[in-house]
Amino acid sequence: MSATRGRSGEGATTSGCGLKRRNAPQDHEDSEMMNQDQLSTEDWCGRFWNGMELLKDVNEKKHFLPTGLEGIDTLLGGGLRQGQLTEITGPSSSGKTQVCLHSASNIAAKQMGLVMYLDTSNSFSPSRIATIIYGISDLFGQRGFELQTKDARLKSVMKSIICESVFDIFALFEVLHQLEVSLLNCKVNNGGSKVCLLIIDSISSLLAPIIGGKYPQGRSMMISVAMILKKLADEHNLSVLVTNHMVSAGNGAVKPALGESWKAVPHVRLMISRECENNICTATVLKHTLLASGRTAKFVAPS
């Protein structure tokens, strides 16, 4: 999926799908248009669901996508829930990218659907994906895989992972809008498969620069990204997985970046930490729609 970006005289950019996105507002008129866009988003969020609709939605539509990391899957009751946004946060080198790579590999290898991987810091590693795929013990019992060579199996799985490099907020808007249009038109598919997992590693690399004062509408843009992601998850039954870094909270403590406005966005927030000098990681629930905060699980995330 290629992103075509260009500027028009009104500060808008047109994607390859003919869909316009708005850059940071430059004047009063742009600010009013931004507010109108937010109102339309709020209208979408204002749909009321009765109890039976919610129960049916949970039981019939929102399934789990296993990450392939036993501790995390057990902790979350099966893995990443479709229709929800899950955030993995933690210090540098704690294993956040490994969770993303394992999730992408496991979903693609088990033919559960396509994975779209948005890479913001050149963290996507095809060789690491290959290592993970060869280590999935129950992969080769699947129909057709046992008849393929090792390289053919890897090629088949890699075709189910769509990787896109995204290095700024405007490129992110572009790709998300293209994805939405493609999903509506059923164009993002491969042999009948549809995107079921969207990964952004790391979303804080794109959002932190715009909320530091350079962009007056930075926080509004951040919330717009949040609403688009949650809308994609809900309307197209995707699981959205994002990573976030940690910042100082004072007195030597640390906390997830992006502040209080973003804190309310994820349905599930896990903090990952790694033990010194080994690959044993601990996942701690910071936020969950069903689980109590503080629950933990250990898992192995080889480097």
Rank of each mutant, 00 (worst) to 15 (best):
G212R: 03
R274S: 04
L232W: 00
K159M: 13
K214W: 04
C163K: 09
E180W: 01
V166P: 02
N278P: 01
G252Y: 06
V181P: 00
Q178F: 01
V225T: 10
H267G: 07
C281R: 06
V225N: 03
S160F: 00
L286K: 02
P209E: 09
S205C: 14
L229K: 02
N279G: 01
T282H: 03
I203R: 05
A208Y: 10
L197S: 06
L197M: 07
V188S: 12
T243P: 08
T282Q: 08
I161S: 02
L184Q: 15
S205T: 15
E180V: 06
S165I: 09
M227S: 14
K155C: 08
T284H: 00
S202W: 03
P216Q: 11
H236F: 15
A283I: 05
F167P: 00
P256A: 09
G250K: 05
N279I: 10
K287P: 06
D234Q: 12
V242H: 04
G218M: 12
K214N: 08
V240W: 12
N279R: 01
S160Y: 00
L229W: 02
D201A: 06
V188K: 07
E277N: 13
N279W: 05
V225R: 03
N244T: 13
P266W: 02
Q217N: 12
V242W: 06
A249I: 15
S220Y: 02
I280E: 01
D201L: 07
L179I: 13
T282M: 10
K155L: 12
K194F: 07
E164H: 03
H177V: 15
L176C: 04
K214V: 14
C196Y: 01
L270C: 07
G192F: 11
A292R: 04
N190A: 11
S261Q: 10
I169N: 03
K155P: 02
S293W: 00
L258Q: 03
V268L: 07
L176I: 07
L290T: 13
T282K: 09
M227Q: 14
S273H: 08
I162D: 00
K231M: 10
G218F: 06
S293Q: 11
I228H: 07
F167N: 10
F173L: 10
V195C: 15
V240Y: 12
T243M: 11
N190S: 12
